[in-house]
């Protein structure tokens, strides 16, 4: 019992350690010392750099990546914001240069229909299959029921 208690304690501390690592990595984004003219602009900057993907390090957004190209693009986002560009204009600016690839939420068009609607269609298909299987089940059960003759036989066996 004592060893079990000890083990769970070890397990607990391992989890705590893992948690600390996760927290650490979430906060370890590169820090730019940009001064924003107001809070709204700062908020928009945060949102945009989260939405835009780094072209070099493909599984990171701009704000998380510390590759030089991501730093350049962050500075460009900052500059464009202070030139008074709208979020849409900044997104388009990046797409014009780096392609749709830089958007973490790609636009809905011919090539992305399957991406946007695929999961919903699969879900509907799954629901359809489940309904089909559930409806079919009672029929199978009826077939398995014993006939009158078999019932008599069973009674006889049980009597013995």
């Amino acid at each position: 019992m004592l060893t079990l208690f000890k083990n769970s304690k070890v397990l607990f501390s391992v989890f705590m350690l893992l948690g600390a690592f996760l927290l650490g990595s979430a906060q370890a984004s590169p820090v730019d010392t940009y001064e924003f003219r107001d809070e709204v602009t700062e908020k928009r900057y945060q949102e945009l750099t989260k939405e835009l993907r780094c072209p070099k390090c493909q599984n990171q957004n701009l704000i998380d990546s510390n590759s030089p190209i991501a730093a350049d693009l962050r500075r460009q986002v900052y500059n464009l914001l202070h030139e008074g560009k709208s979020d849409m204009e900044i997104m388009n600016y990046m797409v014009d240069r780096y392609g749709e690839f830089v958007l973490y939420r790609p636009k809905v068009n011919n090539t992305t229909y399957i991406l946007w609607f695929g999961p919903a269609i699969l879900l509907l298909l799954g629901v359809g299959v489940i309904i089909y299987i559930l409806r079919r089940k009672p029929q199978v059960k009826e077939k398995q029921a014993l006939s009158a003759e078999q019932q008599d036989k069973l009674k006889q066996i049980l009597k013995d």
Binding site: K56, I69, D72, L73, Q76, R97, Y98, G99
Partner: peptide
């Protein structure tokens, strides 16, 4: 400064 690079979509 990488300005033309940015306009060309250069990432490396």
């Amino acid at each position: 400064q990488g300005t033309l690079g940015l306009d060309l979509g250069v990432y490396g």
